[in-house]
Design a protein around this nucleic acid. Structure first.
Lengths: 347, 347
DNA sequence: CATTCACCTGACAACGTTGTCCAGGGCCTA
DNA sequence: TAGGCCCTGGACAACGTTGTCAGGTGAATG
């Protein structure tokens, strides 16, 4: 009953607008706009008056309105699998740095490996009219993105390629990395090597499995079905896989793990096991060097992955119109001990 | 020369608008709006026609325009210190989950512990008219936020309190945690205990130092200046601090570390040291249980921290108008071995 | 003193959406 | 059959900003 002017809704908590600033400074609307945007053509005296009004009212430009008029939001969207996964931290950060260098903000969200949630998130970002998208895809069909891309939303996929559409992608060499890691174990004398990976609907999981199989084949070694376990990265499941592989009549003497989460669980499981078992893990993990033995890993460079993707995105936004392409970054094997353990001497 | 209609700039890459949809469906503008927003008052037949036009054109509502009209952006901003720091991953994720449950998107950025960058980021978020802000502050003066808060931007500080203004905050009990950790070392017989922490301009660093000093005082133990080292978390500096403390004529027999980054470096340094030195670290770190000895830590619950902050934020957005308050969450000491090492028997 | 010109300044429309309000038509009832 | 009501649909303004363009002032020049 005190306030009377409320018409339909309190707009932005009644923030001052350029109109208010103009009225207070006794100038025109456009002059305020000029001052706010540091455009030329304003006398120092006028500028000072406007600036005073701005400070007095606590005015802050409404970028929503600006965006509506200008067409660029200076923001990019990032959809990844899990913000809490340590692998994505440096990637996220690297993308942010590039975005910042281009004056853009980062909007992000987790898909939780759920294709529907990925789509929902991506479309919400498109509705905000982000200028570009960086996606670590959970799904395999990205045709829903076609209208968006055609409408000019630059899109780059990271870590895994796009499904059913032709789009830029920046990947790690999962196949080659896994092949190299497996060959490393073979070179140290192992013949029965297990592979524990992520769910087979995840592209990298399949690639890494492929690399493992390729290396085994190249070494002329058979792969028993019981040596391969794909599924969720939940500790219970992974632990059980380890127990099964090691409890077999002819147990594996080495294990290749498909990603950081699996590696951590396997390290725990092996620590509780009586005989030493060799291990090579995909993805580097913190403190891996301090464990006994140190964990040999196939390291991806998450930061470079992110930076490369973001740079490509902004090149697109700057007008690069060449055909979409894939970049594959090499992985690096870091030997720390666990991958160099020999197989047991007996049998 | 082919395209003639371009007037001032290609708006959003020429995306279809409601007007286009309306024209194609042969209905009025508002009818399209009604369909898009699932408002009542549209015959099924009309709705179908409109929907067809939407699909055919690949129309997607422009939320920028919507926001301009409605006043709520359904997005919240998160400013933290470093997206790549593993401590913030779960926090970030927890906030995202709450935001998602409230239909809001998350825009975030890293301040890199730079107060100016924090302010720049926060104000950019305000210009986007985020509905609320969650801030892990780098600076100590947040008066620049006053106009924003007055204008209705809900704001919650996390991990560290706001400076110079009265605002909601959700904190961990840094003082109590450090005191407890120090007392734990004292209880295991240590009398010369070192403290290596973050820069003294960081609130939690000071609190933890305070907790350390309090526990020492309560135990009637002196604190030699050379036992305390505050500064950046760069490995070189921390490593040097460890070397200095352990190389003194009367070396410390135990160390309390101020955060996860420091802990990791100290663990490395101690691994290279000949005599065992007890260690309690602030913040839990992955694989801490597998090291030898396991690293005893004072664990914060980052996820709860984030969730609590986000819930408070949305309660504010839902109209809660009670006075700002601080919530302090307890920490938990997890004994794993390194904190239970006795001091050397000699002297 | 008149004219030109440069420079400031402000009125106005437009961006795409949603709230308000009114018109028209169909249906029910008296 | 007339009157009234409800339901559907559309015209219009407004949100806060920026681009366009025209007006206005003062100084410099002929």
């Amino acid at each position: 009953m005190a306030d009377t002017t409320r018409h339909h809704e309190p707009r932005y908590g009644n923030r001052p607008t350029m109109k208010d600033v103009a009225a207070r400074a006794g100038v025109g609307l456009k002059t305020v706009s000029r001052v706010v945007n540091a455009e030329p053509g304003v006398t120092p005296d006028t500028e000072r008056r406007v600036q005073e009004a701005i400070d007095a009212l606590g005015f802050r430009r409404n970028d929503s309105a600006r965006v509506l008029r200008k067409g660029r939001t200076a923001s990019i969207g990032l959809v990844l699998e899990d913000l809490a996964d340590p692998f994505y931290g440096p990637l996220n950060r690297a993308i942010e740095e590039v975005a910042r260098a281009h004056g853009a903000l980062l909007i992000n969200g987790s898909s939780a490996e759920d294709p529907d949630r990925e789509q929902e998130l991506v479309l919400a970002l498109c509705a905000r009219r982000v200028d570009g998208l960086i996606i670590i895809p959970a799904g395999h069909d990205h045709r829903y993105l076609e209208p968006e891309i055609k409408a000019g939303v630059a899109t780059v996929f990271v870590d895994r390629p796009a499904g059913q559409i032709d789009a830029d992608a920046v990947l790690s060499d999962s196949f080659g990395g896994a092949r190299g890691g497996t060959a490393h174990l073979v070179a140290h004398g192992h013949r029965r090597i297990g592979f524990i990976g992520d769910q087979p609907r995840i592209h990298t999981a399949v690639e890494r499995l492929g690399g493992y199989r390729a290396a085994m084949a190249e070494a002329g070694l058979p792969v028993d079905d019981s040596w391969v376990s794909l599924g969720t990265t939940e500790p219970e499941r992974v632990h059980e896989a380890v127990v099964t592989m090691l409890g077999a009549p002819e147990p594996v003497t080495a294990i290749l793990t498909g990603n950081n989460r699996v590696t951590v669980t396997v390290v725990r499981a092996l620590a509780a096991h009586d005989r030493p078992v060799a291990l090579v893990g995909f993805d580097d993990i913190e403190l891996a060097d301090l464990l006994d033995p140190g964990v040999t890993v196939i390291a991806q460079d998450a930061a470079t992955l992110g930076r490369t993707a973001a740079e490509r995105l902004f090149r697109r936004l700057d007008g690069a119109a060449d055909a979409p392409s894939q970049v594959v970054l090499p992985t690096r094997l870091i030997a720390r001990g666990s991958g160099e353990l020999p197989p047991p001497a007996d049998r």
